[in-house]
Amino acid sequence: MNPISLFCILAGVALNATAQLLLKAGTNAVGHFDFTMSNIIPIGWRIATQPPIIGGLTCYVLSVVVWIVGLSRVDVSIAYPMLSLGYVVNAFAAWYLFGEVLSAQRLVGIGVILVGVFLVARS
């Protein structure tokens, strides 16, 4: 994989991970809610107008564009497993930004993901 192809794949992963973090920040701002017939429109509006959620959806759109460029250059059997790096990025970012727990079991899982991505990338 050449540097431009790697950049496209990693940029797609980074945009996708950023989208998830922004969506989480937006839902944190909205808070816990129950979907009922009486609140579906007010909650839907509140969700749709949260700047982090709008930013997250924008990142998703950009990630798809960058991902398509990456897929035009890299085999999907190599590119798709790279998306797993988003799990690693999000786990550490959620720990840092939102105070989520990184237990030993999660860290072992992250290690397994990293080994798997390394093996696929080297194939």
Rank of each mutant, 00 (worst) to 15 (best):
M1Q: 02
M1N: 00
I4C: 07
F7P: 01
L10I: 09
G12A: 09
N16F: 11
A17C: 01
A19D: 06
Q20R: 08
L22Q: 00
L22P: 01
K24Q: 08
A25E: 02
G31K: 01
G31S: 03
D34M: 13
T36E: 04
S38F: 03
I40Q: 09
I41H: 13
P42H: 05
P42N: 03
A48D: 07
P51C: 10
P51S: 11
P52C: 08
L57W: 06
L57F: 08
L57K: 03
T58E: 03
C59H: 05
Y60R: 11
S63C: 10
V65D: 12
V65H: 14
V65P: 10
I68F: 05
G70N: 02
L71E: 11
R73C: 06
V74P: 00
D75G: 05
S77G: 07
A79F: 04
A79M: 07
Y80I: 03
Y80M: 15
Y80T: 03
P81F: 07
M82G: 01
L83D: 04
L85D: 00
G86L: 04
N90I: 14
A91T: 06
A93F: 12
A93K: 06
A93E: 13
A94V: 10
W95N: 12
E100R: 05
V101T: 15
V101D: 15
L102D: 14
L102A: 13
G109P: 11
V112G: 13
I113M: 05
A121L: 14
R122I: 04
